[in-house]
């Protein structure tokens, strides 16, 4: 692999994950009550907690998206993204194993599916695993091209040559 290209590949990964978070947040932020219902549909949290999670989550997703777009604290943001995705995947798998028939609510909608419509847990989990891979990449190689991190801290010292 050409190591000179790594920061540019990293940039693509970073912007990809940023797009995921921005879209996920934007699709929920307009109807916080529905977001809370989607969380409650997992039947994991008590109602009042579900409602708070449903209201807080879209804004945190948007913030993660903006931070990734800027490339600010990329490693930390990738870590938080990965942790959130692990929670989401666990939620979907748990709903799956309990035989609930819900939409994951990943990008808006959410809640119980109409009768006759079967849930698509497998693709949802696969998709989230893909996003998790993006976060994992940035966790290992957080230094990407065109980032605020790079502008603020400069090139790594080790690469400097007299």
């Amino acid at each position: 692999m050409n190591w000179k290209l790594l920061p540019w590949f990293g940039l693509a990964v970073r912007l990809g994950l940023a797009a995921v978070w921005l879209y996920a947040g934007a699709s929920k932020v307009g109807d916080l009550a529905a977001s809370g219902r989607a969380v409650h549909a997992y039947q994991v949290l008590p109602y009042d907690v579900s409602v708070v999670v449903g209201a807080v989550l879209p804004f945190v997703e948007l913030a993660l998206g903006v931070l990734l777009l800027l490339g600010l604290a990329t490693r930390l943001v990738a870590g938080v993204s990965g942790a959130l995705l692990v929670v989401f995947i666990a939620g979907i798998v748990s709903a799956w194993s309990r035989g609930l028939a819900i939409d994951c609510g990943c990008f808006g909608t959410g809640g119980q599916l109409p009768a006759g419509q079967s849930p698509s847990y497998f693709p949802e989990v696969l998709r989230d695993l893909g996003f998790l891979a993006l976060a994992g990449f940035l966790l290992i190689w957080p230094r990407t091209a065109v980032s605020v991190d790079g502008a603020l801290t400069g090139e790594p010292v080790e690469d400097e040559d007299e």
């Binding site: 916080l32 809370g36 409602v51 708070v52 209201a55 807080v56 989550l57 879209p58 804004f59 945190v60 948007l62 913030a63 993660l64 903006v66 931070l67 600010l72 604290a73 930390l76 943001v77 938080v80 605020v148 991190d149 603020l152 801290t153």
Partner: peptide
């Protein structure tokens, strides 16, 4: 790097608080 991390965490916390207050 430390200050950048603190800044990023602050952004996330503020975002969460916005959601909380909207609720």
């Amino acid at each position: 790097t430390l200050w950048i991390s603190i800044g990023a965490v602050a952004v996330l916390v503020v975002a969460g608080l916005i959601g909380w207050s909207a609720l």
